[in-house]
Design a protein around this nucleic acid. Structure first.
Lengths: 342, 342
DNA sequence: TTGTAAGCGTTATCAT
DNA sequence: ATGATAACGCTTACAA
């Protein structure tokens, strides 16, 4: 037995009035008598009428859906950004459609296309690691006026608004904090310097040192991956060189964790002998026996800001203008035991 | 300047053929000549034609969208289930729409309605904590044939398929593991026993004890919340009673972590004096200096299974039948340092 | 092999 | 205050 939804046409037939009247009554149109409005509302409820937003969208050109493309949804960072976007847009009647690129530009391209086919009103994306050529993104801009918003992992494409955090500042405040705690010889675990975000964190580190009268020593900048093992290896390398510093600013929480593990193994006390600070404020940093200081990227806020940028964009679009926005959020320092010397 | 999408009508005009032919050519209809197909495909690309799935959906009654309602997206468990659903359904052309209930039944109801208005082809949900009355869910079942699938947090509603894990078995294997490690006096931190999942874990614990010839002592069952603090408090209580056990099976990883922290503070060695095992396999459990054993709920697999149940459901629906499915997943034991005595 | 036209459920523009 | 009708972009009988 197939259950068919009631339509405004069904209501109009039952009530012997036109569909136009029903539609207007349902939409609280000013020039419809209160009596009919009430009657329509009542019978609509009786017949269990549900508005078909598909038909509405086809007519209006607005689906009230936005797409989000992320590498994976189940990381703290990305799921938190998604949460922020959903919370910002939900009150305005928007729904968010989630796609995972699996760090594959081909999948990313496919998702972008089907999202456009689905007539979404906007697309939020953090590009995949394999996204070098950005033609698939640019072409959307050329052929539609659906706004695209980059968050965190951006590409420089004219006409696309971005929401990121100030990684430079993040590197700066983390390093400055270590200096203020009395550290004199601060190492940096850098992450993949091919990525802009890591280069920015490094530059913040350098500037903070310079501003406080320290020399930047190249041997103190250790290229380190974003894994626990990478952190372990980095410490081993420093140990072998007999150049354990008195502080480490790691561009990754996971590497910071690995460093802590290996330092402990070598009976080096944290933070007394080596102060440690990471980046991202992963949930685990606060649960450790020795909680790790970290720089928070405020991902929920990032999502909310991205949502706001989208809403403004939509408003501008309808009035013809279109301003590219660049929102840069301020990273938040979370000081914990691993770096507190005083 | 507004960019309008090309339609099949535009193509038909340009090529002086009918829209029907264009539509059929684009859909690779068998009775269309190869020549026209190629011609249409070529000009479609030239004109940058994008299919409007809205119109298609309005016609076919299939949006290829499914909705997911969870309390929050940014927890490891829920974001992992979402990942599983997306990965299972994406190859079949489905998109997933995410909604957060914020544990509020009113918001949940609202989302459910707008999802139905959006004509989704199915809804996956984990009910909010405040969902007692389930009328809003039942009414969907009565008035549409859109399948609803519960995962993890289910309600018993005839006609709704569910995907859950076997919490009873989870409690059983965790307890049995502790017994096999030689523990003789095993405490249970129970979680909120108003919730079915926690009652099941407790029952598994009891049965395992019984099966191995141990008596179940009521004083060994400690009602404990799902937070770090709750775990700390539970240990303090046991300490005051002078009844520290030789093992703890906690129904929550967070409470297990709190227990570990407090035990350490009291200089009680883990696992030698007290073995500890938690539940959920939260990411942090493996990152600790003393990694915590835990029972994994296989959330990604749960999502994938839910996706499969949906696909089967859709297939059955179209052929008239409709079988309610109850998938129960097997929890996975992850043995780590905190419970390894041998 | 291709064309004509109806229909999916709305909203909006004319009329009345 | 209400009605008739076209339109949104597509698919699909039914014809030719």
């Amino acid at each position: 037995m197939n259950k068919k939804n009631a339509t405004i046409y069904d209501i109009s037939k039952k009530l012997n009035i036109s569909v136009a009247t029903v539609s207007r009554a349902l939409n609280d149109h000013p020039r419809i008598s209160v009596a009919t409005k009430e009657l329509v509302a009542k019978t609509a409820k009786e017949m269990n009428y549900k508005q078909n937003n598909l038909a509405k969208a086809l007519k209006s050109g607005e689906t009230k859906n936005v797409g989000i493309i992320v590498p994976y949804v189940n990381t703290n960072f990305f799921s938190s950004v998604i949460r922020g976007i959903e919370e910002e847009l939900s009150p305005f009647g928007y729904h968010v459609i989630i796609c995972q690129s699996h760090e594959e530009v081909n999948i990313e391209r496919g998702h972008l296309n089907t999202l456009m086919n689905a007539q979404v009103d906007g697309v939020f994306m953090s590009v995949s690691r394999t996204t070098v050529d950005t033609e698939h993104i640019r072409s959307i801009l050329d052929t539609s006026n659906t706004p695209i918003i980059f968050f965190d992992r951006k590409k420089d494409i004219p006409g696309i608004s971005t929401v990121t955090i100030d990684d430079y500042r993040g590197g700066y405040i983390a390093t400055e904090h270590l200096i203020r705690e009395g550290c004199k010889n601060i190492c940096h675990f850098s992450g993949d310097l091919n990525l802009e975000i890591y280069r920015n964190r490094l530059n913040g580190y350098k500037q903070a040192l310079a501003d406080h009268g320290f020399q930047v020593k190249e041997e103190n900048i250790i290229p380190t991956g974003s894994s626990i093992e990478a952190g372990v290896e980095a410490i081993k390398k420093l140990w072998d060189r007999k150049s354990i510093p008195d502080a480490i600013f790691s561009a990754s929480d996971f590497a910071a964790l690995g460093a802590c593990q290996e330092l402990k193994k070598k009976k080096i006390r944290i933070p007394q002998e080596v102060a440690v600070i990471g980046f991202s404020n992963e949930p685990f940093t606060q649960f450790m026996e020795l909680p790790i200081s970290s720089v928070d990227q405020t991902p929920v806020m990032m999502g909310k800001m991205a949502g706001q940028v989208f809403l403004e964009n939509i408003k501008e679009n309808s009035s013809g203008i279109s301003i590219e926005k660049k929102v840069v959020l301020t990273p938040q320092l979370h000081i914990r035991k691993s770096s507190k010397r005083k």
